[in-house]
Design a protein around this nucleic acid. Structure first.
Lengths: 249, 249
DNA sequence: AATGATTGTTTGAGTCATAAAACAAATATG
DNA sequence: CATATTTGTTTTATGACTCAAACAATCATT
């Protein structure tokens, strides 16, 4: 099952995935445009990917991803997103450079490095001491707040986390439901109620107490809610979100 | 002058550079061994690199780098080192993964990203508030010191830096000469005396007051001193090092 | 339906990086 | 020195990825 695809073939998978996402359908011409190659090149790439059972493809028809292909695409997209997150939110790289570098580096990054980077980004975003920002004039600077706060240790953070834990299924003060956050908001997971069907998905992805959750977007009716956790993008029903308790940062 | 080499050709240049550094001479067989290809492959790569005037090469003789080739090699090595530094010292990746990822990603990283990363690494290493460490059990943690220090702002750092500046060629208290550091030590540049010939080189590389200097190695007789600044490796004479004033971190 | 435009495919050819095999030069070593 | 071994080169071939050009299918419009 371990398809070792070349960077270029990964790009085709990724492009198809994005097209399906945005336009519902992936046409040869669209793929060719995005990848800046001719349609002839796309056709032969599609044949190869089809042979590897990553896409459903037959001549003159539109393309779709097989479950294996979709799975792979999601991995690739996650690598891209994590790198982009780091470049944008930690290094403050300009948007064009963010995309450009993420596109090239996403094919080279190792699993362990990726997970460590996820942890690092999360830590920098969550830890109240890591108030580090970049600006054109001074480069990186820390804690430019008007009232200098005292430097607290991680122990303090985890203690405060422990105090807000659920006990026998009851959640405590200071935590709110994920559904109460608005788009763009973020918080740290305090507890995930296990009766929630979304919880299983989250567990499988290594999303646990202490993880950073960011709300990406909320659909017009407040359902579903698109969130980002550990570099994964998830879409939760409002009912599911109610069972995820977070502490606002 | 802007040779756009493929990642593979960059690897050949890098390998040749490393071989020349370590063994004084780069043989086809050695290059083949390091790159895990046959000698036939090396020969054709050498012809291509020679055509681009990056190496001096004629059949049956050993290989050397032209000035352009050496220049390029140094760029590539720097990209590698900066990435490795980040993976090792910021993300605490195990050594094997550090090398592996740096080797692949060094060909993909953009100039702006590289410089920003250099700045970031330097900031994390220098800023007294950024006491962030990784361990197997807890992941990233901050400030585990016994006596929690108060969180100071960058302003304080820069003020303390300003106070120690040279005035009319005279250096002030709290700064020592770079030559006084021992191997492995590091500090922040307070001032570089301009009469120092090494200073010109440093200026050209964007190495200024506030930069982090790390002493890599000191030769048996205390001369030369190998240092790392902004991801560059430099070899300074002891006399040159005396003209660089630093504040120990 | 007929026609023209659009979209997609096939074929043939080129580049790059690679190796196998045959060959050539350089270097030990008896 | 003569020859065996090592080292390096050339030739030929392959797999990926690409395009141009010729061809084929599909779609839109009258």
């Amino acid at each position: 099952m371990d398809h070792v695809l070349s960077p270029i073939m990964e790009d085709y998978i990724e492009t198809i995935f994005e097209l399906l996402r945005r336009e519902q359908v992936a046409r040869v011409s669209d793929i060719a445009t995005r990848m800046k190659v001719t349609m002839a090149t796309v056709t032969s790439a599609l044949r190869k990917l089809s042979a590897k059972k990553l896409i459903n493809y037959s001549p003159y028809s539109t393309v779709s991803l097989t479950p294996a292909g979709k799975n792979l695409a999601e991995k690739i997209v996650r690598r891209h997103e994590v790198l982009a997150d780091f470049f944008q939110n930690v290094l403050s790289l300009p948007p064009s450079k963010v995309a450009e570098n993420a596109c090239r580096m996403e094919h080279q990054i190792d699993d362990l490095l990726l997970e460590r980077l996820v942890e690092y980004i999360e830590f920098v975003k969550l830890c109240p001491n890591m108030n580090i920002k970049w600006n054109e004039k001074n480069g990186f600077r820390c804690g430019q707040d008007e009232n200098p706060k005292k430097f607290i240790s991680c122990e303090d953070c985890s203690k405060s986390l422990a105090r807000n834990t659920t006990h026998g299924g009851q959640q405590m003060n200071d935590s709110i439901g994920l559904h109460e956050l608005k788009a763009g908001g973020r918080g740290r997971i305090i507890a995930v109620s296990l009766k929630n069907p979304g919880a299983k998905r989250m567990m499988e992805m290594g999303i646990v107490r202490g993880s950073l959750v960011e709300v990406e977007r909320i659909a017009p009716l407040g359902d579903p809610i698109d969130i980002k956790v550990k570099g994964y993008h998830l879409s939760l029903r409002k009912e599911e979100a109610k069972n995820i308790f977070i502490e606002i940062m």
